[in-house]
Design a protein around this nucleic acid. Structure first.
Lengths: 345, 345
DNA sequence: TTGTACGCGTTATCAT
DNA sequence: ATGATAACGCGTACAA
């Protein structure tokens, strides 16, 4: 199998390599006839420029990276799809990279940036707890999207972020449940370690309870220590089962993700508990599955599409120096559906 | 921001570039002391080799590509995760690329191969209908995994495939439903065009019906023409709604994917139909959501993990000339759960 | 408008 | 065991 290079094409057309290069890259200084001839040869011989050589030569590889922590979370699938479209629009390639639970995201980011010479990074999910010093090693702009929280001591001029206020939104949900008359509200929270969204949502839960003078009952805080994927249905199912086996009484169960809630719903069902008659159930994220489940799930919807679009736009604006780093917080929406109800008197 | 290159490291350590290269790549001919010194400098200055330069120099970029048609299908998420792990084990990078519905997969593949100089390709999902001639242009080995079908006229020596017999497995499900006493079985099939898995599963449906002497009622074949994602819950929901509005009578509904089934279940619920008392509901794929939904969904489970592992192994075996192209068909499993029941007499 | 020549960062070959 | 140097394929300054 013959793989032609730019030289071969040049030779075939009887022109210099720079002319071929100009033809490929739509440079202005080129005779349209020669360009035509070259493009024909390229098609005929199936020439495709070697990306490595291009990126080596170019200071900037037209590419950005998306680093995801927790790929199993279906919440991200939507975001990625949108981000990819947005990148394509701008003729940029998008490198997708998963970060394992035990990997350090900044290390990975640094490696990816140098390896691929890309122009920017989007961090998706996970949490963030790195020193400013380490952050400075990143030579390209980056934006955190839907990342739990970023320590206060890092200069906000160093990075951008797009997120919802997980703590406040979470409180919103618990507030709503309390308004329904619930006092014994259990919470299902996976991965409550460090500054994760899980922790934030748990804090919001406590906030709301306290605001209403309800004491936080630690027995109702159901944390999963398992090595299970943090936002899986399986995890929600098993954790809820354990909670029930412990014999705790509660009238509402709030899971910090829809997937967990779906799993929980199954566990409740198997225990003979009806939703919402016996137990009100609430989720968080606003995934499709929350909408189509039976009963449909009361949840907090994050404006996924808008966040994804704005994340991409922001990154590109920063790359092209159109704007400075920014910190945007979106409002999420409480979607009241069938899975929650007033507590019977 | 200073980005050291191999030359800088060499200069810093007072050695030649080749020595540094040897240190990086674990070459045998190197003094362990010098290696130590070099590795320290690399750490200290945060040197990361430039991938583009490496791939340019190396004949083979240690990388394979996974080309996915229909990223929205959650079925693939699991496969990708496994494939990625398997690649990592072998110290290969995995390029993930989505193929738009209207893109030609072979064209994309060819472009990716040349651009990235990679060693092999895995096609995930979609269907396949290309001329042998076109296929020959692909200079690296490739394996189709869970791809609908491949035309008979293409030499099986040209490619590998890993799949389940969608037609037969689909018939298995319908067979089971018929065994339950159902005669009026509706089918929900998105994307029945060409040789897709949708089409194959539809054929299996017809096979089973005919085998039992039941006439195929085209009114019960519910195809979605929408531009909706083929395997989305939304699609299942809307299509089922339309089916119900048409006033068709059926005692069982078979959706060719679990996601469609979940959507369908919601539509049935809203129409006041109980599952399985009024309508038996069945899916296909064996996703988590089928297991945790209420009622749990009778479905066909494809051995995802095994298929993903074997797909990767096969590709690498072919790359390293350990084996020839192969065609493996896996047995899927009928999972009988709560959503299907005997038809009441 | 077009062609020549150099260098991007790396690995491999060949001396030393 | 180590160092100098030639490629790899491309873009671009500079010369023509």
């Amino acid at each position: 199998m013959f793989e032609p290079t730019i030289k071969d094409i040049a030779k075939i057309c009887g022109v210099g390599v720079s002319t071929v290069s100009r033809a490929i890259n739509n440079h202005p200084d080129i005779n349209s006839e020669t360009k035509e001839k070259i493009m024909n040869a390229i098609r005929e011989y199936g020439y495709v420029p070697n990306d490595s050589a291009r990126n080596l030569k170019r200071a900037d590889a037209k590419a950005v990276a998306v680093l995801i922590k927790g790929i199993a979370n279906p919440f991200f699938t939507n975001m990625i799809t949108v981000i990819e479209q947005e990148c394509k629009k701008r003729h940029y390639a998008m490198e997708l990279s998963h970060i394992e639970a035990d990997e350090d995201e900044v290390d990975v980011a640094q490696k990816v940036v140098k390896e691929k010479r890309l122009r920017g990074i989007i961090f998706l999910g996970g949490l963030f707890s790195h020193s400013e010093e380490k952050l400075k090693k990143l030579s390209v702009p980056f934006v955190f999207s839907t990342v739990g929280s970023i320590p206060e001591n890092i200069s906000k001029k160093q990075y951008s972020s797009i997120s919802v206020d997980d703590r406040r939104e979470s409180a919103k949900m618990v507030d709503y449940l309390i308004g329904l008359g619930h006092k014994q509200i259990a919470i299902l929270v996976a991965e409550a370690s460090e500054e994760s969204v899980g922790k934030l949502r748990l804090e919001g839960y406590c906030d709301a309870l306290k605001a209403h003078g309800i004491e936080v009952n630690t027995n109702l805080i159901c944390q999963t220590e398992e090595a299970l994927s943090h936002f899986s249905m399986e995890n929600g199912y098993l954790s809820t089962k354990k909670l029930l086996e412990r014999g705790e009484t509660f009238t509402a169960l709030y899971a910090v993700s829809d997937a967990l809630a779906i799993g929980a719903r199954r566990a409740l069902y198997e225990a003979g508990l009806r939703v919402p008659e016996d137990v009100s159930l609430a989720g968080y994220d606003g995934l499709d599955m929350a909408e189509y489940s039976v009963p449909s799930l009361t949840t907090i919807r994050q404006p996924v599409e808008k966040m994804a679009k704005d994340t991409t736009k922001l990154l590109f604006d920063i790359i092209s120096n159109k704007t400075k780093h920014q910190h945007v917080i979106y409002e999420a929406e409480l979607l009241v559906r069938e899975s929650t109800a007033k507590i019977p008197e």
